[in-house]
Design a protein around this nucleic acid. Structure first.
Lengths: 220, 220
DNA sequence: CTTGACTTTTCGGCTTACCTAAAATATACT
DNA sequence: AGTATATTTTAGGTAAGCCGAAAAGTCAAG
């Protein structure tokens, strides 16, 4: 059996790779709020395991092996299913689910996983729009089109939000930028703040927001 | 914040006290499946904490302080609420709930606790008939009348089962001895096996069973 | 009241995961 | 290319919990 800790490292490595393409010691240290030295140590251990869970060469960053990726995806499946379950079955808001799921993900059984997946109807996405991996370790591509890249005149829909910070998510909710909300971009000046029509009113949205909200074409 | 470990020790101390009256180092070691030496060490630590969670003098056994009891009851509340939630909301059998709850109890938030308690309608008993402590740390007396002590001719109802062993619980289910099942004792020879009429058929039940099934008068 | 059996505690050691400080390596700039 | 800056790794240490073996303490039976 793997420790919660090992699972957290693998998940963090997967997620860093997913949304920044590279996994450095310091990035991992920051995400896990531990000292860089601790990361080096732990990563070396993961690389020495049988089977190895990461590929690692000093000063060269880290990557998941197939075995490591499999485990990461299983933990992520737990996390996202739990988030959705908390939202759907227990009335949690999308800003509250992350912290709770973060702890539950390490302790639920496969049976629990199966039962909530069944209750939820084998869902494909969590409350933030992230794809839920299958039991077999397959994941759909997450939506990658940032709102900041939409051109004026287009009508789209919120498909995913990157950033689990409760304050940020609460703020988005106040703006009407909730999952699946339709919106129309009215002005999109070069590099400047977008004007967006959402939930009946028009807002100016800064980069801090539009870079973290991903959208898909309406009707998909 | 207390470690899961600390919580497990406090819970075990509470439960041993509850159903055998005395808490020895070796009993605790057996229940927690650790070496006696480890128990001694840990108990000393609990006694040194600020505030102290247990009263302890060498060779004299251990007892909970008010602070320790409070924590034990909170963990037990978590455990029993989770057990009931798994049974009611996710269709777990009463033989499956214990193992899952054992892990979940340490990681859920107060919010989670409140939400499932609300969904369940502030329940008073878990799937084994054990009373669920309140948020404030009060517990009802568990039912203490063993089936083995019922006299012939009496009609009673299963109110509680002591023993979380899945095989034992499955066996009880097969016998029709489920929670709240009404039953009638037809013969109760001195110290011998009871004859019991339950779910339409009559069975002979050995001591191993009748000592672990507790009953209450029908109509309560 | 002494002895032998059992229980409990102490002792020295292990593992996991963390830390800080110092050393090694990499990168970036002139 | 050579040096300053930044990142990463090594080294030495700490805290929780666990262990087995040996010492200490308890208690019942003779």
């Amino acid at each position: 059996m793997l420790s919660s800790n090992t699972e957290d490292y693998l998940k963090a490595i997967y997620e860093l790779l997913e949304d920044s393409g590279r996994v450095t010691t310091s990035a991992l240290a920051e995400r896990l709020t531990v000292a860089p030295a601790s990361v080096t140590e732990m990563v070396q251990k993961l690389a020495r395991m049988q089977p190895a869970l990461v590929d690692y060469e000093r000063h060269r960053g880290v990557a998941l092996t197939e075995a490591g990726r499999k485990i990461a995806l299983e933990v992520i499946r737990h996390h996202r299913l739990i988030e959705l379950y908390l939202a759907e079955a227990l009335g949690y808001g999308w800003h509250e689910v992350h912290a709770e799921a973060e702890r539950l993900e390490h302790v639920i059984s496969e049976e629990f996983e199966d039962k909530i997946a069944a209750v939820l109807g084998q869902p494909a996405h969590d409350p933030h729009g992230d794809p839920i991996p299958t039991r077999e370790g397959e994941v759909a591509e997450p939506c990658r089109r940032a709102l900041s890249q939409v051109t004026a005149g287009e009508t789209v829909r919120v498909a995913r939000v990157r950033d689990e910070d409760p304050a940020f998510l609460t703020h988005l909710t106040e703006l009407g930028l909730v999952l699946r909300a339709p919106l129309r971009v009215t002005r999109a000046p070069e590099g400047g703040p977008l004007s967006v029509e959402v939930a009946g009113s028009t807002r100016e949205l800064e980069r801090a927001i539009t870079d973290h909200v991903f959208v898909e074409a309406v009707g998909v």
